[in-house]
Computed example of a mutant assay.
Amino acid sequence: MEFPFTGEPIPASEEAVYAAFPSYRQHGLAMFGPDRVVYSADALPILQKLYQTPLHADDLWLLTPPKCGTNWMSELAWLVNHDCDFQAAQAYLTPDRAHFLDMPLLVSSSRREAMVAAGNRMVMSITDRPRPWHIQTHLPLNFLPPALLDTCKVISVVRNPKDAVVSLYKMLQLNDTLSPELTVDQYAELYMTGRRFGAPFFSNVLRAWEQRNHPNMLFVTFEEMKQDLRGVIKRVAAHLGKQLTEKQLEQLERHLSFESMKDNQWVNKENLGFRKPDSSTGERRAFMRKGQTGDWKNHLSAEVAQKMDVWMEENLRGTGLELVTQLPQK
């Protein structure tokens, strides 16, 4: 079962891409597949290995674009699947309880080699982990094992891209992936054209949306979680074949409120250095930042916000999918 796509190198002449992601300039970037997903030029063997990830009926896969509620839903689904064992949840979500499949793809060659040499569990092989597996990935469905949906339970979470792009920009700034000179508007322009690291937003989202009626797929939006968290908990429980008591529902709703989650060290990646003050600026490196819908208004220019509206309309036309960019105030 070979990975069906090859890589097309992004030439050094595409200065906008390499200026935005300077750490990849040395080893180069490439585009893979019909959607032209951008990864390191040496990513093909990694993509091949991930495409061949073993599948088991009791594994749970969580598919999301970056900063669309990955860890929020991951904590929810893990607790539902583990019968609300809050004591066991007092361990880091990744890499202790959940496996982030994409990690070897997201670091430069030299850093990946250093992490492997140091025995860093973020880049360990999934086959070295105890089962059943709880898997997080930002990869699109056509990059994942072909029998995934027919074998495993899958949950897909998506967020409106105007908030997602701002949140991703802030995170990439903090972990030094982006050039410090790049503005959020400039990053949003790259985001819309797909000329940025990772999968283009809509090709990723719509591949999952097209499978929303598959019995093993549950499709949820971040905004639904904001508006009706208890309702989403119930949908996840039904999808996973779990029965929750009223007390468990109340406990989960409290535990999963964003106010609680943003201070949860086990979810907020404190083991990876987030939420610690930056040594040079003193800014707190928060992984879970605000969790708001509509915060994009405080960051994107009116011109870029309007461009994103047009881009969203063009990509969503005829799909039946609606993405909410502003929620009513409670």
Rank of each mutant, 00 (worst) to 15 (best):
D58A: 06
E224I: 03
I155M: 07
S279C: 05
K49D: 15
L50W: 07
K247S: 11
V17Y: 00
F202H: 10
E283P: 10
E322A: 13
L76V: 14
Q326I: 02
P140R: 00
K269F: 15
A41H: 12
Q26L: 14
N271P: 12
V158S: 09
W61E: 03
S260I: 02
N160E: 14
A302M: 00
D309I: 01
K247I: 12
F100P: 05
G294H: 06
G231Q: 07
Q265L: 13
E2D: 14
S40N: 09
E313N: 14
S203P: 06
L62D: 05
P104R: 04
I233S: 11
N315R: 15
E224W: 03
F258W: 12
P34G: 02
G273D: 13
V154S: 05
K170S: 12
E246H: 07
G7H: 10
L327E: 10
Q248E: 14
I233K: 12
A16L: 04
S279Y: 08
A16W: 06
Q243R: 14
E75F: 09
P66V: 00
R25T: 14
L148T: 02
G318E: 12
R285N: 15
S125W: 09
M103N: 10
E259R: 12
S110V: 11
H255Q: 13
R129G: 13
Q306G: 06
P45A: 03
L105Q: 09
P22W: 01
E283R: 12
P66S: 02
H255N: 13
P95D: 05
S40C: 13
N204L: 06
E181V: 13
D295H: 09
M103G: 05
Q186S: 07
